[in-house]
Design a protein around this nucleic acid. Sequence first.
DNA 1: TTTAGTCTAATTGTCGACAATCCTCTCATT
DNA 2: AATGAGAGGATTGTCGACAATTAGACTAAA
Lengths: 227, 227
Amino acid sequence: MNSMNPARQAPVTTADKIFETMQREIVEGQILAGSKISEPELAKKYQVSRSTLREALNRLEKCHLIERKANVGSRVVECTVKGLLEIYIVREALEGMACRLAASAMQDAEIAELQQILAGHGQEKQLQDGVAYYQEEGDLDFHYRVIQGSNNQQLINILCGELYHLVRMYRCQFGMNSPRATRAFDEHKAILNAIADRDGELAEMLMRRHIAASRKNIERKLEQESN
Amino acid sequence: MNSMNPARQAPVTTADKIFETMQREIVEGQILAGSKISEPELAKKYQVSRSTLREALNRLEKCHLIERKANVGSRVVECTVKGLLEIYIVREALEGMACRLAASAMQDAEIAELQQILAGHGQEKQLQDGVAYYQEEGDLDFHYRVIQGSNNQQLINILCGELYHLVRMYRCQFGMNSPRATRAFDEHKAILNAIADRDGELAEMLMRRHIAASRKNIERKLEQESN
DNA sequence: TTTAGTCTAATTGTCGACAATCCTCTCATT
DNA sequence: AATGAGAGGATTGTCGACAATTAGACTAAA
């Protein structure tokens, strides 16, 4: 269900394939966060020329998974607490706005479809109570569809194209098996209700609170760990 | 005053220089919006190899000034009304949030400095009453500094790195000699007062209204023209 | 006249080699 | 011992050529 999530145009060129492979390996931590990227080494590993690899690196940089410095090279981004919280802030602002727009722009049919998906998540949740992984995938799925519903191409590009995989990376590497699953599910329902009521203002507020609550949950958890 | 605006790391490599040159030419319209980009042609024009040119194209794509399709090529983005309004929406969300953060994060000294800058703009405005150009530059300057003041690197990257020049492009090509100069100046003052009062909530609201007012102003103007 | 198909020319993607820059280790000097 | 200069090795940036794909023109058939 999630595999069709990204705004993916089927990888046609070989640089596309290398890009997707590396993207997955970075997100899942097989290429370590913060590690230096050696162009000759990776070119050999994937059996492509350095030009092709560099093309892939350029796209990884576009979705904020690596950082480049001239004449020095590329590094995988580090997963810091500060960075994670910064992303939540950006998401709060952008997804809140997306939600407001979606309340105006989404078709009735789209809303109905999303309601069905959400109901499906609810059943899965009941069945697999406590197992948060699917809920997490479902969470991304819900957010993804609301963003698409905004019908604002800039917004969609930034959230689904440039930030999406960075969010996934943090989820993977910080192992977020949210204890908020149940509450998050209810919040999703409330947000969708506001959208269905065409109440953009309320929808934005609920989405912002929803994301802010996740952020504060992380802050609290990390605070505890440091004690 | 504006030339030091972008988060520019001095261009060290030749691809950097080509990138900056093309960036300027696209923003100012010397390379026409919507036009197709011929790699061989431009490589000859700038006297560099295609590899170097493609490196520059990759960065232009990062700041949303061109779009690429696999096996087809690159085009300069088109300046459409829809696109312009979409950007205003994104800015409303992100700069509003930046403003909220700035109210907490900016140092007293930074705030004082910004107050002086704003006062300077006020004098210029009085002197050159009606001439909106400097005010427009000043507008970007003000927004830029507030964004920096948020101290959120993700936010700064998106707004100052990826969207900044696209905004400039629209300003250039739609010829926005704002009749809102006076009002915008007053709004800036109110925003800065809220920041100085450390009232993040108010600061966000004022910034959002400020940007939304600009957007509606554009909508109104374009609506009139179409009649 | 229109449409389908094919062929040619041009453009983009990929490759390997060379040039320029940076990092590190060594050695000399204070 | 600490600091600085310099050489060596490795990495990144740039180049020109080849391969793969696309766009456009031309022909032929319905």
